[in-house]
């Protein structure tokens, strides 16, 4: 267990320390800023921004995972196979929409702030989860399916006790991809007024303060790498069978 989660724990600790004591970054930031510029963003506590960032990504990720899983399960059932083309096309089309476009189009409908960003993150998080759910469930081999059927398991039981556990490592890859992409995309949400670490970067870009840009970028990148290693560890745990044995 420990070997899977050591790296993310260390990174998370580093992130928390930097969020609570941002002045530790000043020696490095001083190299970037013009003389006389503020070095540390102090309009809001960095910890508050980071927690909002996480809440936004987490809430959207949860919604995207539930919908993506449900859709993936639906189109791989015999009755839903006809919807496969639709789902494939919609997900291909979704990838041609840049995140900023989804945000920009959502603003007039939902106003500035949390809501349009939440919507964009849901849309963007959905695609990887859906794709990997389909790939994972289709990857369950026919003999295994047959054996489950032969044991007299019902359709729901087969899905819940055989297919989903076997597909779990692949599905977790999708959730990981979706989370990492969304931590980055949430930053763009700050251009439409969502509260998050992107605020620091946008403030830096607007006032020409590279120290702000660098600290915002470093914190977001650290958060993304932290989430990436944690979910990768979870995936390895699933691979080892520890999650399914229970």
């Amino acid at each position: 267990m420990r070997r899977y989660f050591l790296a993310p724990l260390v990174l998370a600790a580093l992130l928390v320390v930097l969020l609570l004591r941002p002045e530790l970054m000043t020696p490095l930031l001083r190299l970037l800023a013009e003389p006389g510029q503020d070095l540390i963003y102090d309009r809001k506590p960095l910890m508050t921004l980071a927690l909002w960032h996480l809440a936004l990504v987490g809430a959207a990720g949860l919604v995207a995972t539930v919908i993506g899983l449900a859709l993936g399960i639906l189109v791989t059932r015999p009755g839903g196979a006809e919807f496969m083309t639709l789902a494939r096309m919609a997900s291909n089309l979704g990838q041609t929409f840049p995140p900023i476009a989804v945000l920009a189009v959502a603003v007039p409908l939902l106003g500035f702030g949390f809501e349009p960003t939440f919507l964009a993150l849901c849309v963007y998080g959905l695609l990887p989860v859906f794709e990997t759910t389909v790939a994972g469930l289709r990857g369950v081999s026919a003999p295994v399916r047959e054996a489950a059927r032969g044991m007299g398991l019902s359709g729901v039981q087969r899905l819940w006790r055989v297919e989903l556990p076997l597909a779990m490592p692949v599905i977790l890859t999708g959730i990981r991809l979706s989370t990492v992409i969304n931590i980055g995309t949430a930053t763009i949400g700050s251009t439409v007024g969502a509260v998050g670490l992107g605020e620091v970067i946008v403030a830096g870009l607007q006032s020409g303060n590279t120290a702000f840009v660098a600290q915002g970028a470093a914190l977001v990148a650290l958060m993304a790498i932290c989430a990436e290693t944690a979910l990768r560890g979870l995936g390895r745990l699933a691979d080892s069978g520890a999650l399914t044995r229970a």
Binding site: I183, T187, L205, V213, A217, V220, E228
Partner: peptide, 9 residues
């Protein structure tokens, strides 16, 4: 994994 807006900055 680096956010695009941060990479630009």
């Amino acid at each position: 994994t680096t956010p695009s807006i941060a990479m630009f900055g």
